[in-house]
Design a protein around this nucleic acid. Sequence first.
DNA 1: CAAAATATGGAGATCATCTCCATTTGTCAA
DNA 2: TTGACAAATGGAGATGATCTCCATATTTTG
Lengths: 189, 189
Amino acid sequence: MTADKPLRADAQRKREALLATAREVFDTGGFFDLRFDDFARLAGVGTGTLYRHFPTREALAEAVYHGEVATLCDRARRLQATLPAAEALATFLRGMVDHIAAHEGLARTLATLWADRSSALAEGSRALEQAVTDLVAAAVQAGAVRDDVDAGAVMMALHGIGAAHDRPGWRAEADDVITLVLDGLRRPL
Amino acid sequence: MTADKPLRADAQRKREALLATAREVFDTGGFFDLRFDDFARLAGVGTGTLYRHFPTREALAEAVYHGEVATLCDRARRLQATLPAAEALATFLRGMVDHIAAHEGLARTLATLWADRSSALAEGSRALEQAVTDLVAAAVQAGAVRDDVDAGAVMMALHGIGAAHDRPGWRAEADDVITLVLDGLRRPL
DNA sequence: CAAAATATGGAGATCATCTCCATTTGTCAA
DNA sequence: TTGACAAATGGAGATGATCTCCATATTTTG
């Protein structure tokens, strides 16, 4: 699948230009409101070129999203290496809320892409999911967290948080969701 | 806003035909994959008529959604009247998962509409949110549930469940989310 | 440096959405 | 009942976004 084909020099350049532009728009949250052809114009590229590099809007979103996910996964790994398992998990989840709060675009895009069952996104999210799964597994191992609920449930909760990003009291509610999840995860008895 | 305007007989009929067709498609989950104009053809109605009755796809979705929400709210009220507060809340939430599992279309539509921040949907969801808020408030009143988290957090979790409806292990994970929320809600100490 | 391979851009085809209005259908007063 | 007025209809075509195609330009290779 990842059969890296040698990319011509100009192609590389255009691709990067496209990505740079997309990243900008992505972060403002206007990603899905912008005519797709305009990405091309904005990036100083022809429409044909845009479509060759990214056949669909989702493909482009996915590419941008990848970077975001990488950042988050790094964070997860770093926390897992430096903190006790339970604390790492808690810190990571709290940090996710901060991150989403700071990146409107990420939240919106996540919500939209998930809603459309974009398989590309599902693919891109796998890394993030793995990171969460690892954090939870470590906490279970450490005996700090119950072992009878799937890490997928935590992902679902995170989705809920991302998907509801435009609710009036979002921040407080998001924090509350994390609180519920963390308290719910604590080994009962 | 609800200035009931007397609707002509044929208008009434067409509107009902449109709604019936939409309801059908809605429940199959194909609501957003179908050309909007085709609702008209399917319902035996001209495009113009469709657009006069429901100016946008979302307006139509909202109308169908209304019925779904009403059902759920009824359930909530009935439970609240017959069970202890904590049990009513738990039963309702568990039931939501059943309901979503049984109505693929509802889940998909919900997710899509929320992702698009459809204000119409936000409006339609208010009733559901009120029902959840009431259930939580009653449980708090009864001392069975902590009072430092907003009912909105529960809504968020429900969204997460609905939005992730196509995950492979959906059912189990959804149940786990509810478990986490319920355990998390239990008054600590 | 010439030929082959690769990539470009943007004009226009395609397709879903939505508008407009000449015609039909229903309502109501006489 | 009927005539006249209002309300509603349907579908042809305007609109506007998405995507394809290919003649031209750029890069790489021998």
